[in-house]
Design a binder for these strands. Sequence first.
DNA 1: CACCACATACGAAACCTTTCGTAATTAGAT
DNA 2: ATCTAATTACGAAAGGTTTCGTATGTGGTG
Lengths: 131, 131
Amino acid sequence: MQEKVFKPTDAELEILSIVWENGPSTVKFVNEKLNESRLVGYTTTLKTMQIMYEKELLGRNRSGRSHTYKALRKESETQGMILDKILDTVFSGSASKLVMQALTSGKTSPKEIEEIKNFIEKMKGDDDGNI
Amino acid sequence: MQEKVFKPTDAELEILSIVWENGPSTVKFVNEKLNESRLVGYTTTLKTMQIMYEKELLGRNRSGRSHTYKALRKESETQGMILDKILDTVFSGSASKLVMQALTSGKTSPKEIEEIKNFIEKMKGDDDGNI
DNA sequence: CACCACATACGAAACCTTTCGTAATTAGAT
DNA sequence: ATCTAATTACGAAAGGTTTCGTATGTGGTG
């Protein structure tokens, strides 16, 4: 039962993605990455990352005259939290509905479907052992 | 390529859930339902539903002195849009990662896992026909 | 050490969401 | 017709997010 649900905003999520993918990064680097997909001013990115530091979404330390920021939570942990919230608020807690909706969107390749199937087979095996 | 991504806010999603589950509803009804889980003033609910009407999330028509509101989009359509966004922004487009994360959270019952497995089997069959 | 380039810090504007108080409207009862 | 209770409409405050301009600080170079 977490008291305060951890919930990055959209802008924060964009930055987290970059840091997760590229590892500890400077504001300059993150801002350049952001600008590959949309226009954002440098100080905008800086400010957002400073806020994320205050919120403890990012850690940082000086290196020379600048800061290097790193994600304080693992990508999978954050993904899990976000998905749990969606599960509750959008799918009334039904994971099967969520999964089926995800698979129905048509954005899943046959290869991915195969991966998922294998994953489920493995999972069922684990469960059987525990029942 | 949708120009303007449709994205209900949290409060709007709460209301949509109620209307999806119960069908066309008055403000009074929705507000009572909301108050089963948290305290919300009547005019707060009213205002939110009026905004949703302007945004074309809800349709409405007078019945007597009050309005009856109905959802203008199907639940599944909205769920799909929300999930697509999460897929892109949180899972870099990898549906398999998303699905596995959903299944790993531990909130999926064995019965649901069975349902999902059957669904995938069926899906694979459909695909094979198309390849 | 003075300068320049770069980086951070600060503050505020613009915008959105959520909330609710108050005013106006309406339908039905007396 | 008038009053009352229910309902809608309106406006604005409070809080959060995103944006960026300007000020301040810092480290290396001449």
